[in-house]
Amino acid sequence: MRAWVLGVCGAVMVVAGVAGPAGAAAGPEADLSFHGSAVMNGDQVEVRVSPHNDGPAAVPGASVQLRWSVPLADRQLLPAGCARTDERTLVCDTGALDEDGTGEEIAVAVRLAGAPSEFTLEVDTAWNGGAVDRDRSNDRLKVLVLDTGDAYAF
């Protein structure tokens, strides 16, 4: 028997099931990737993320996790489709992703707590619509962002 733990916005659900035959895929195969940039000006940060699916299957919906190495300010005005999951993390909906398709750019502006001169941003798939992604190297990214006003690409 296998158990899966799914976390969504702080809630945890455990799903138990019987494993299928050896080598059987859990769902359709899709290769998600994220590209974008982050800019820091004082305590203000703007992150832009473009989700992409290299296929071979479409994904009915997915979400990207953005995690800062420093805490975010307590009060944030987040775009629709984004939710804060803890003091350093946001999860944003990518919407459906066609095979070999790019989703709409996600633009998030946040304020950081304190006055850091730099932070590390980790970008990762939070949910991939139940697809199997055999290449996780292009959807788990880290970028060091300095308080220079320059865009740091990932």
Rank of each mutant, 00 (worst) to 15 (best):
R136L: 11
A22F: 13
E29P: 03
G114E: 11
A73R: 04
A3E: 14
V108A: 01
G55N: 05
R111S: 12
V39H: 02
F119K: 02
S63E: 08
Q76P: 02
D133F: 04
A58L: 07
C92A: 03
R88V: 01
D93W: 10
V123Y: 03
P51G: 03
V12I: 12
G42E: 07
G42Q: 04
T85N: 00
V64Q: 01
R84E: 02
A62V: 07
A11Y: 13
E87R: 10
V143I: 15
V91C: 03
T148G: 04
V145W: 00
E122R: 04
A16R: 14
L72D: 02
V47K: 00
V145G: 02
D124T: 07
A3M: 13
V47N: 02
G103S: 04
A107M: 09
V70C: 11
G36F: 01
P28S: 15
L90D: 00
V39F: 08
G17E: 15
G129Q: 06
T102I: 13
V15S: 09
V59N: 04
K142M: 10
A83L: 13
G81M: 13
E46N: 09
S37W: 11
G81S: 09
V15K: 09
E99D: 12
H35C: 08
D86P: 02
A25G: 12
V39S: 05
V15P: 01
F34R: 01
L90Q: 03
V64K: 01
L72P: 04
A58R: 05
L78C: 10
S50E: 15
A16G: 15
V123S: 00
S50D: 10
A107H: 09
P79Y: 12
W68T: 02
R134G: 11
R111D: 10
R84G: 00
V39I: 14
G20V: 08
L6C: 07
N128L: 13
T120S: 14
P60V: 04
N41C: 14
P51W: 00
P28Q: 15
A26V: 10
F34S: 00
A22I: 13
V12T: 07
P60L: 14
A131P: 03
L32F: 03
L6R: 11
D86Y: 03
D93S: 00
D98P: 14
D135Q: 11
